[in-house]
């Protein structure tokens, strides 16, 4: 039966938590008592095999996490929403300015499906950053535009390099006239 102190040192050695003094203490114990070396080797072997076996147990099946399809609940207001909102407003201004110059008012028209043709593909696909390649969301703000908790505004960086501001209503489709100054989309499954 090993001394508890030696057992502790062996455990620290295996976990890489041994300091210089403790290493010297363990080395002396190993020289003094062959059982210490035997226990150290055995514990190291068990650790190694456990690492292999547990890895298989944990990672054998990796199911994607499925979120409930119910509407989002009310969430925290965190400290970054204000600068994010300001940044989003600036980006909207730049975005709309771009369309005004191009005479692109008609391009903002919402098609019968309720999705503007200028929206990136992300609006018609599951929300997965992996699947949408370079398209990524750069900001969001729940209820920013109309104060409703069940809607949100997302700023999306499209793969064409343009920034898109998308208002998403989680309850009903939002149809806006072509003169609307926002792009609206509806996610039925959000």
């Amino acid at each position: 039966m090993l001394d508890e102190r030696i057992e502790l040192l062996i455990s620290r050695e295996l976990d890489g938590e041994l300091n210089a003094d403790e290493r010297m203490e363990l080395d002396k114990a190993i020289l003094r008592d062959p059982e210490v070396r035997e226990v150290l080797d055995k514990s190291r072997r068990i650790d190694e095999l456990a690492g292999v076996g547990l890895g298989v147990q944990i990672t054998a099946t990796t199911e994607p996490v499925e979120l409930p399809s119910q509407p989002l609940r009310s969430h925290h207001s965190s400290s970054w929403w204000l600068p994010a909102s300001v940044a989003a407003a600036i980006m909207v201004a730049a975005f709309l300015g771009l369309f005004t110059q191009k005479g692109g008012g008609d391009r903002l028209a919402v098609n019968p499906s309720g999705v503007s043709p200028i929206l990136p593909d992300i609006v018609n696909q599951p929300l997965s950053p992996r699947e949408n390649g370079p398209i990524r969301q750069v900001g969001s703000r729940d209820g920013m535009m109309n104060g409703r908790r069940d809607s949100g505004v997302f700023t999306i960086l499209g793969e064409d390099g343009n920034l898109y501001l998308i208002q998403i209503d989680r309850v009903q489709a939002v149809q806006k006239t072509p003169t609307s100054r926002l792009v609206h989309a509806s996610y039925g499954d959000l």
Partner: peptide, 25 residues
Amino acid sequence: VEAIANGDRFAFQELTRRHGEWVRA
């Protein structure tokens, strides 16, 4: 985590990707 608290599903998926393994552990 802050983004998740604001209802961001992208952020949620990212957190599950980063920390799913130790949660399983």
